[in-house]
């Protein structure tokens, strides 16, 4: 798609590229709102100009007609906008639901923002800076955190955006529909070189993507790096697969529901695993003592991601890579 490349850097577009499954839905709502806005703007402006001309003051002493209002009119222009806003609200809410609910099967990529660059980590171990390669046609989920201040991942062509916060995970998902190179911006002001914290999302045909993937993974997959770290930090002395350790068995745990000491149940997700590493005593699994130390300050954000990915990779069955 040389044409797409050329278009992106030349000429003046008036409308952004639409390159994800979400783009069409957002654009439809946008056009609907433009129609509504144009209708009311023209209506108001037309009436004002019409009245200003038709009822212009013809003698210095003339005064306006004597009437003060009308209940029917007031109700009309209260109720009609009310129903229009309900339509917009429901429409906008449904788009937002779709944005915040990723499909079950996603290609997960970890993102770490720091002043002023983006670091991407693929599950197979590839690391990229300010450039993100993804295949066309597959839903991709970005799991994001920041090393310092608040950043924000924004890919206009996909119509998605989310803040990237220090100390917690946020995520967005998108499904690219068109190969090409698209802008990636930091959309939350983050300091001096904020406008330099930009990159590109490279959407590739699946076959090209496979080629790119196999091009280089010097450090092995993310999960295997996590496995090494799991050994190095001696996590495996307590978290043993045979249920004999002092900590819970992690195999097959991810995505399941766990019961806490307090009696409440939670879903084991990235955020919970992360919290359990950094602040283990906050939410302890039922049947275990709060004896695990915190690793706050001992592991970097990137190492945390490796550990989380390792925990995710631990299936109940022996972890055999099928691919």
């Amino acid at each position: 798609m040389d044409e797409a490349d050329a278009d992106m850097w030349k000429g003046t577009p008036l409308f952004p590229d639409s390159a994800s499954t979400m783009a069409g839905r957002v654009d439809a709502l946008y056009f609907f709102l433009i129609v509504v806005s144009a209708f009311f703007s023209v209506l108001i402006a037309g009436l004002i100009v019409f009245y200003a001309v038709k009822y212009r003051r013809r003698s210095p002493d003339s005064v306006g007609a004597s009437f003060h209002g009308g209940m029917a009119l007031e109700l009309t222009w209260t109720v009609i906008p009310f129903f229009i806003t309900i339509v917009i609200f429901v429409w906008g809410a449904s788009v937002f639901f779709a944005m915040s609910r990723p499909p079950d099967e996603t290609l997960n990529i970890y993102v770490v923002g720091k002043q002023w660059m983006w670091k991407f980590q693929h599950l197979d171990g590839q690391r990229e800076i300010n450039e993100l390669h993804v295949p066309v046609g597959r839903p991709v989920k970005l799991i994001m955190t920041s090393e310092d201040v608040i950043h924000d991942v924004f890919v206009p062509a996909f119509r998605v955006k989310a803040d990237v916060l220090p100390g917690r995970y946020t995520n967005i998902w998108f499904q690219p529909t068109k190969p090409g190179r698209y802008h990636l911006f930091c959309a939350e002001y983050c300091g001096t070189r904020h406008s330099g914290m930009v990159g590109e999302v490279v959407v590739m045909d699946p076959s090209e993507y496979q080629t790119w993937l196999s091009g280089g993974a010097p450090e092995g997959s993310l999960a295997s790096a996590g496995a090494r770290l799991f050994q190095d930090l001696a996590c495996n002395t307590c978290h043993r697969p045979d249920a004999q350790g002092r900590g819970p068995v992690l195999e097959g745990l991810f995505g399941k529901t766990a019961t806490l000491q307090s009696g409440e149940t939670i879903t084991v997700d990235e955020a919970y695993v992360r919290e359990s590493i950094l602040n283990p005593s906050a939410r302890v699994t039922a049947g275990f003592q709060p004896i695990m130390p915190t690793f706050q300050g001992l592991v970097t954000e990137e190492q945390l991601l490796e550990l989380v990915e390792y925990v995710k990779s631990l299936q109940s069955l022996p972890p055999v890579q099928t691919r």
Partner: peptide, 30 residues
């Protein structure tokens, strides 16, 4: 006053774009 009404109308209507949460995601911070 006429200028106000016209411009405020546009400002107010584009506020609907931003209140509409699915659309706000794309246009906020831009």
């Amino acid at each position: 006053a006429i200028g106000f009404i016209g411009l405020f109308t546009i400002g107010g209507l584009t506020g609907l774009f931003l209140a509409s949460v699915g659309l706000d995601v794309h246009v906020t911070d831009t």
